[in-house]
């Protein structure tokens, strides 16, 4: 595959946000967490693209929207290597990794069936500890603790 064909897969963006290096299996969850379904600006989503680091990756390009940092960090659990590019007038003006916040609100479902968050309409809240593969999430309500890999996401 030539490089020009590679670029064709993802059209250039004048203004907006590009989120790259999302693991393929996490792509649509990331779309949901970021609320991209509800946007009316142009959105390009690519998935199962070749990636040296991830094997297979997804990418999201959203025109005319710059997401707040805390919104983007909400995908850090499922896409820890995601790279955010802020584009203004075709130029990348900012490039940074997402980072896992200290608390995750409304993203992860508590796997304890007796937890109050599975019985009342309230956003879940998890306290994050550890890094990388050792990430642990403790439910603020029932204290049930799971590893980052075990956590099931919701929205």
């Amino acid at each position: 595959m030539t490089s020009s064909k590679k670029e064709l897969a993802v059209a250039a963006l004048r203004n907006g946000t590009v989120i790259d290096h999302i693991p393929s299996r996490a792509l649509f969850t990331a779309v949901r967490i970021l609320g991209i379904e509800g946007l009316d600006t142009s959105v390009t989503i690519g998935n199962n693209l070749a990636s040296e680091r991830l094997g297979s990756k997804g990418i999201i390009k959203v025109a005319d929207v710059e997401f707040a940092e805390d919104v983007l960090n909400r995908i850090a659990l499922i896409a820890p290597d995601a790279m955010v590019n802020i584009i203004r007038d075709y130029e990348v003006v900012e490039k940074r990794h997402v980072s896992l916040p200290d608390t995750l609100v409304g993203i992860v479902r508590c796997s304890n069936p007796k937890c109050v968050t599975n019985h009342e309409k309230i956003p879940t809240r998890f306290i994050v500890s550890g890094h990388g593969a050792d990430v642990r999430l403790r439910c603020h309500y029932c204290n049930h603790t799971v590893s980052g890999a075990e956590a099931a996401t919701i929205q």
């Binding site: 109050v116 009342e120 439910c139």
Partner: peptide
């Protein structure tokens, strides 16, 4: 309460 986290909530 039998629900865990009920008091915190």
């Amino acid at each position: 309460h039998f629900i865990e986290g009920a008091a915190q909530y």
